[in-house]
Amino acid sequence: MDYALMQRVFPFFLEAAWITIVLSVLTAILGLTCAMLGTAARLSRFRMLRFIGATYVSVFRGTPALIQLFILYFGGPQIGIQLDAFEAGVIGLGVNVGAYMTETMRGAIISVDKGQGEAARTLGMSKWQAMRNVILPQAMRLMIRPLGVNLNTLIKSTALVAAISVVELTYTAQRYIGSTYKPFEMFLIAGLLYMIIIYVVGLAVTWADRKARLN
């Protein structure tokens, strides 16, 4: 192994890791937003909204994220959507992970005991008051861990945007391989940095989960 080379390129990988982190954070925010809307739609009393929610989930979970990115980035201009690679990456991955998170949130909400909502309604609360004060606080605790799993998947799938040439970790590794012909070293650095990001996020999720369970 060429340690000297690894040391030389490491600062550039750190910069790329920063891009991966920014990309992950923005994607997670967009994903959570989509998921809240998706969950509201899926649990709506309007059949049309339920249908839209279910279609969103099955389309975005039923096709490869890479194809979704390609359609958005390469196909977009054909229908008048001009995005730079980073924007396309955030939007493509965010909407994609939102579909998975929708199912996570919905699953947590519907697994809160039915008696909870009934007790709240019996006291005279409206559907929304019962949701807001009784069901959601309990569902939140149930969804932290599975949302953490979604987040983990999301961080790893940011590697896909290398395919539309966003200069994040994976793309950077590929670029240095082009000039150094050392794929083993380059991918090793990239993998290590992914691992650190994911480890830290995992710790945060575990911490949040434990904190939610304590009270």
Binding site: A119, L123, G124, M125, V134, Q138, R141
Partner: peptide, 29 residues
Amino acid sequence: NEVRQEIGMVFQHFNLFPHLKVRENVTLA
């Protein structure tokens, strides 16, 4: 919702709100 405020219901499985203390279970509504 108005009608239900006038009708108290007690369930076989209690259905207390587990995330709230006894006090808040009573004061919430």
